[in-house]
Structure formats: C-alpha cells, structure tokens
Design a protein around this nucleic acid. Structure first.
Lengths: 235, 235
DNA sequence: ACAGTATTTATCCAACGAGTTAATTTCTCC
DNA sequence: GGAGAAATTAACTCGTTGGATAAATACTGT
C-alpha cells in the first residue's frame, strides 16, 4: 500500500502556490473585508493548507498588505501603457476616463480593497514602502496632458492633476463601489448595461465640458444614448 | 449597609438608553465595519450591559440596520431643509454641493457606514422598507432645479437628476472617504484646511462649468484660492 | 541511495465573541 | 406596602478562528 504513489502528489511549485494564495486572498479580502475574511477559507480556495499561508506569505495582516500592494501595482502598471502623450489633450482625458471606468468594472475587487483599506484609515498601507514610489510618474503623466491642453487652447484652466485624477476616479469609483446601495435607494439597477453606458457618457461629458469650457464636447455626447423619460440625459 | 442607597441608581430611561445604544453602535460600526465591530464594545460605550442591546434593539444585524436607517434618515431630512426652490439654478447647485461636502465632513461615520454596507453589497439595506421611500422627494427636488435651469437658459442640458446627484456625491465622497489612502499614495495631506478648501472650489467649478457651459463660473472660483506651485489650480 | 532541506499535512488550543439564562433591582399602580 | 411588570446585571455556553506544533512527504545534490 506504500509503493503505488509514484505520480507526483504535490508538483512542488512554491511560486505558483504563492500566487494562488495571493489570488485567493484577494477574493476573500475583497468579498469580506479584513475582519470578515477567514484564513481557512483563503487556504481552501487556494487549494492549500492553512499552514501554507504562514509559510509562504505571513500572517493575516501581511497577507492583506501583499494583496493590497499587488492591486496598486497592477492598475498603475496598466496605466503606464495608456500612452496619453500621443493624443490630443481632450482625447487623452477621455481615454483616461474610459480606462479608469473599464478598469474598475473589470476589477471590482480593487474597489473593495480600497474601501476596506480606507475603512482602516490606511493603517496598513502606511507601512508599505513600495506603493508610495509608484505614483509620481502617474501624476506627471496627467500634468503633462493638462499643460499641453492649456498651451493648445483646448483647456481653459491648468487644473491640478491630482485634483483632476481624484475627480475622475471619484466619478467612476463612487458609482461602482456604491452601486449596491444607490440602486436600492434610487430604485434603479445601476449595473444594467444601459445604465453603465449612460454613466460613462455622463462622466466624459461632465469633465470635458468643464475643462474645455465649451459644451460642444458635452452635446456630442448627449446625442448618443437615446433612452429614458424625456427629461434628463447625459452630462 | 442596605438602607444607604436611596438615590436612584439606574434612572430607568428606556428611550434614552436606546438612543445611547444606537449612537455607540454607530461609532463602533463606522470605526470597524460590521464584522470588525464588537458587541461588547458597543455596550461598554453606551454605558450598558451587553444584554441591553438585545433587549432594546436586537441582535448585531438588527442593530446595524437600525444604525444605517438612522443615518439615511438624518441626511435626507437635513437636505429637505435646503430650500433650493428659491435660489436661481446655478446657486442652488452650488448650495447642494456645499451642503453635501460639509455634511460629509461633519459626519464621517456616515461615509464609513455606506462603505461598509456597499462592501456587503447592500445585503442589509435591501431588507429595509423605510429607506426606499425617502428618496423620491429628494430626486424630484433636484430635477426641478435642473429643469428651471434649462428654462432660464442657465443650463445647457437637462441632466438626469440621479446622475447629477451621484456625480456630486461621488466627487465629495471619494475624496473624503478615500483621503487616507489618497494621502499616502500622493504624499499630500488631503485633510489639511487648504486642501479641503481647494477641493470644494474644484468641485463647484467643475460641475457648474459643465452645466452652464460657460467657464465663467469656473474662473470666478479659480481666483479664490491662491496657493500651490504656479501650475494647477481649481477645476 | 542517502542526507539534508524545502514543502506540505494533520491536529491542537487558547482566546474571543455572539448570544442566552436566570437572578436582581427599580418602577408603577393599586 | 406589596404584587407584577419593566429594566438591568452577572455569569455562562458554545461555536469559531487565528495561530502554533510537530510529524510526514517530496525534492536536491552528491
């Protein structure tokens, strides 16, 4: 009864295991928050034993921080590929909005993780050294677009890039991360396809109209989604 | 040693006790989330015994829902006092933004509670009957302002009031509820007095510029906060 | 094939936390 | 001044959970 096991039972793959653990942890933390997350569930989901988490990553807190850092790393790295430098400024802003919106849609766990971490007043993130460094290039990228827009006459004001980004992210984030409660209180399904399309138009219209000072951009958009009651569209 | 106690030891005040419990629960839930909240801590904070919570309100979940409903009730009721009907449309919108911003600033627990509830995908809120009913008047209030603005020629587009409110709330909410992580990643203290003033200007400028299509409103604002680096202001 | 190391499993446990039981104290009204 | 109801307390139960221990199993180089 001992010899039979000649096939590899474990396929020993520390790196793969580490990744599966982090992925499982991401799911768990985003679904239940830090306090609500269960170490056992993470282990189960990763197809591992609980002890493995401690072996490969660390205790619950370290696990959580690793997930968080990974999440920031991923979005900032995708943003670097946006290549806003080669677009004319209004188009660059539109593209940034669309990317942010779609990224948030594709990565709902990222939103949850941020919410969780903010609930904890960034207690854990403050301990991270990696995260702080990855943001200045991003801010500079936006600043450049804004300044080019002002030079070209497309934009009316040299907006603070940080304010602008926070606004863009906020318009996307709040809608999506709070869609559950908003859908309940306003009695609409905000995650329906139509609603999402309408939202994207609204946001692009709002930001571009404000930046360019012409409502042209806004009306272009306003034509697109033909829906609802007669009153009220876009912006 | 028995007679001495002639002063009332409890002053039996069921209604007051209920309120103290709900207040303590609000603090606890907003500080730690649903899973992180500790029933014993709530009791202690309310100056009560744990059994009292169950006696006066119910179990942890019912307690949580009661807090949540109370929070919505409070903000919507303050909003009813805004009296937007008597202001000209742009002024009304400015006032709505300023109210929302200040309310969020004054009631950070409200933000946390919403975050927590959204993390739970509104599971609890869905069970509430009270909350759903209190929002249509609010939406109508905004719709009226928008339509008046279109009629008067102040606004370019008849924005969907729900979209507009979500945008306003989102601009305020994201900045404040995520200020912890944002401050870390951007290396600025977003809760400093200056930063908050700048943010309010930015938001008012952004929304009004988009609605009116004139950047006038935006520049009026832009003059106010004389600060930072040369590059970048307002909007 | 054997020693040494890296990886994984199977159990255990002490602490904690939500919720309960039952006794105790205050109030009310007759 | 006492019976019954309302409010409060103290002590206990019991499942859960993060983390720890130690033994087993696979892999590596020699």
């Amino acid at each position: 009864m001992a010899k039979a096991k000649r096939t590899l039972k474990w396929q020993r793959d520390p790196e793969g295991m580490r990744l599966r653990i982090l992925e499982a942890a991401k799911q768990e933390f985003s679904a239940h928050g830090l306090a609500g997350a269960r170490v056992d569930r993470i282990a189960a989901k990763a197809g591992a034993n609980k002890r493995m988490l401690y072996y490969h990553v660390g205790n619950k807190d370290e696990l959580y921080l690793a997930v968080l850092e990974g999440a920031y790393d991923k979005i900032r790295s995708e943003e670097r590929g946006l290549d806003l430098e080669h677009l004319d400024p209004p188009e660059a802003i539109r593209r940034l909005i669309e990317f942010t919106w779609n990224y948030f849609l594709r990565n709902p766990e990222f939103l949850s993780l941020l919410q969780t971490e903010n609930l904890a007043r960034a207690k854990h993130l403050k301990r991270s050294t990696k995260v702080k460094s990855m943001h200045s290039p991003f801010v500079e990228m936006i600043r450049t677009v804004v300044l080019r827009g002002v030079d070209s006459g497309d934009f009316q004001v040299a907006v603070d890039p940080v304010q602008l980004y926070i606004s863009i992210a906020g318009l996307c984030f709040f809608y999506l991360s709070n869609s559950a409660t908003l859908s309940v209180i306003f009695g609409r399904d905000l995650l329906a396809k139509d609603a999402k399309d309408e939202r994207l138009s609204h946001m692009v219209g709002l930001v571009l109209a404000a930046l360019t000072g012409r409502s042209t951009a806004l009306f272009e958009i306003a034509k697109a989604p033909k829906s609802r009651s007669a009153v009220a569209q876009t912006v």
